[in-house]
Structures are given as structure tokens and as C-alpha cells.
């Protein structure tokens, strides 16, 4: 049952996000609109995007509290996700094993970040004013995932060997049963929900960033004619 749910949500995630990425890639960008000062070379743009993706450059300029909470959350989530590879690799990849001791700190970083972001949404009048119910639900959902994971890490330890068998079963289509743990059940259900809503929600900011013309365009409109079909003067003159 859980296996089916996870498969379904994964399929929805891949197809849904794939469709969105296809849309973003094929929708025309008729004019040059990088927010300047912008790099004048492709390599410069790669560097700008890398800083944006890794360090959240623009957010750092905008608001230090939002930046620190948001960065803690995302960095923690990345490490936590990578640590989960130990359930899917056998033997466990070396670097995943090395990362393992940090998983609890990663989970805590996520928690701190999420609580900070939630507090900001409640306390700052401007952010409260722009929040829809879905904005709170999204935070609660991810908080639930992080908290249930940490509960299993610190308090209600679950049978990790059985979890690994379950995960391996997912990869090889030889389904194993899940250890009977309510917290684990909740953890996985919430993850499945997150994957399901990803392509239909603001989580699209993840692929979106890479396609944002104000960030990913090279600033060279005088040197190279962008979109020559728009002018139609190409052959004359």
C-alpha cells in the first residue's frame, strides 16, 4: 500500500515537473531583460546562477533573517536527503557513510529554519498580509516531515534494517513490508504528499529559478541581436 503510494507520487512528481520544465524551456523569451548589472558572458551567468542557487545571493541582499532561516532549511534538507541514500545504496556509498554523522544536525537545521520562517510569517505584518492558507500548510507539511524524521532519530528508533529492506524493495520491485511504526508511517505519507503537490504548487520555485530571464540572460543586447525574427529587418540593409 505504502509502496504504491510512493510510486504514484514519484510518477506525478517526475511527469508534473518534467512537463513544467518543458513549458519553461519552450516558452519564448522575446526580449532581453536581465536585472543589471548583469554578466556579459555565458560563464558569468553560470557564476551568477551558482551564487543564487548555493548562497541565495539576492535573498541575502534583501533580508538577513529570511536568508539565514531559509538557507539553514535548504542546506539541512539537502544533507538530510543525501543521508537517506544509505537506504537505497548497498553497499552504502563511501561519501554517504561519511555524511551520516551529520544527518541529525541537518535535521535540526531544517527544523530551526522552518520554525524561523513560520515565525516570520506570523510576526512580520507585511509577510502575514501576503500569506495564503497554503503558505502555512506547506510549512507545516515540511515541518511534519522533519519532525517525524528527528523523532525517529532521537526518541522512537525504528528498525532501520527493515526500512532498508523496504527501500531496496522499492528499487527492485520486490516489495518488503514496512516496520510497524506510526511515526515512520506519517513520515512517508507526508513525503508522498509533498511529492504529489510539488508540480502544482509554489515548490516550482526550484526549477523556476533556472529559467528566470532576469537572472539567466547574458547582458549583450547591443553586441548580439536577440531574437532577430522580432525585428524582421535581417535581410535588408
Amino acid at each position: 500500500m505504502m509502496s504504491a503510494m510512493l510510486y504514484l507520487s514519484l510518477v506525478v512528481l517526475v511527469l508534473g515537473v518534467g512537463r513544467k520544465i518543458y513549458q519553461y524551456a519552450t516558452t519564448p523569451a522575446p526580449l532581453k531583460i536581465p536585472t543589471t548589472p548583469a554578466p556579459t558572458t555565458r560563464a558569468g551567468v553560470v557564476w551568477r546562477m551558482a551564487r543564487e542557487v548555493v548562497f541565495f545571493d539576492s535573498l541575502f541582499k534583501a533580508s538577513k533573517p529570511t536568508w539565514i532561516f531559509s538557507w539553514l532549511f535548504h542546506a539541512g534538507m539537502l544533507v538530510a536527503l543525501l543521508c537517506h541514500l544509505r537506504y537505497f545504496t548497498d553497499p552504502v556509498w563511501g561519501w554517504v557513510a561519511l555524511l551520516a554523522p551529520f544527518s541529525k544536525f541537518a535535521g535540526l537545521a531544517m527544523l530551526v529554519g522552518l520554525i524561523g520562517l513560520l515565525a516570520r510569517r506570523v510576526v512580520v505584518d507585511r509577510v502575514r498580509a501576503i500569506s495564503a492558507p497554503s503558505d502555512f500548510l506547506m510549512l507545516f507539511l515540511i515541518l511534519g516531515i522533519a519532525a517525524s524524521g528527528l523523532l525517529m532519530r532521537f526518541f522512537w528508533h525504528t528498525d532501520i534494517v527493515a526500512v532498508k529492506q523496504f527501500a531496496q524493495g522499492l528499487l527492485s520491485f520486490q516489495f518488503a513490508s514496512l516496520p510497524g511504526s506510526f511515526v515512520l508511517f506519517m513520515h512517508l505519507i507526508l513525503v508522498a504528499i509533498l511529492l504529489l503537490i510539488f508540480p502544482f504548487s509554489k515548490l516550482l520555485h526550484a526549477p523556476g529559478l533556472f529559467f528566470s530571464p532576469s537572472r539567466n540572460q547574458v547582458d549583450n543586447p547591443r553586441e548580439r541581436q536577440h531574437n532577430p525574427s522580432l525585428s524582421g529587418h535581417g535581410k535588408k540593409a
Binding site: 516558452t27 529570511t66 531559509s70 509577510v127 500569506s131 520555485h205 529559467f211 530571464p213
Partner: peptide, 24 residues
Amino acid sequence: LVDNSRALRVYLDSCVKCGACTDK
């Protein structure tokens, strides 16, 4: 407009309501 502007399409989908712009 959305079909013909990558900017618009990405911008309409991507906002997470983080509030970074609210005092700008």
C-alpha cells in the same frame, strides 16, 4: 501572454511569498 513570455510564466509559478520584496 503567459504562453509567449517565459518571464511571466516562471514568475507567476515561482513566488513562495517569502516577503523579501515587501519592504523594497
